[in-house]
Amino acid sequence: MNTLFSYLIILLAGLLFGIGLAISGMNDTHVVQGFLDVFGQWDSRLIFVMLAALIVTLLTFPLILKREKPIFDSLFHLPKFSQIDRKLIIGAAMFGIGWGLVGYCPGPAIASISYGYWQTAVFIVSMLIGAFVCNKTTS
C-alpha cells in the first residue's frame, strides 16, 4: 500500500476524475442546475456523463470484485452496512436539496478550486462544517 506505484495510481485516478468532470461540464453549476431544471431550459448533459460512467463501472466492477483482493491491499474496503434506513433517505434528501440550490455536489466543488471563485470556497467550507457537525451529532 505504501509503495510509490500505488500513490501514482491514486494520483492518476484523481486526475482522471477531475479531467472527466471538467470536460463534461459538470464543474459548471449552471449546467448541473440546468439538468435539475426539468421544467425550465433542460440541459441533458449530466445524464450522459452518469450513463457513460455507469456503463464503464457496471461492466468492470463485478469482475474486479470476483478477485480475492485488490493489487495493493489485502482486502476490498466496501461498505458493510446494507440496510435502507431513515438516515440514508433523510441524508440523500438533504443532499439533493443542497445540490439543487447551488449546483455543486462535493466532487465538482473540490474540482473547481483552481477556478479561484470565492463562491466555491464558501460552499466547500460550509460543506466541511456540515459533515463535521453530522459526524459529531449522529452515531
Binding site: S24, F76, P79
Partner: peptide, 27 residues
C-alpha cells in the same frame, strides 16, 4: 465530451477499486 468525461470518471473508479480496493466516492 459528456460521454468521454463520464468514461474517464468510470476509469478512475476502476483504478481505485482494482488497485487499492477503495470506492472512488468523493465524500
Amino acid at each position: 465530451l459528456a460521454a468521454l468525461g463520464g468514461s474517464l470518471i468510470g476509469i478512475s473508479a476502476i483504478l481505485m477499486l482494482y488497485f487499492i480496493g477503495r470506492i472512488a466516492g468523493i465524500c
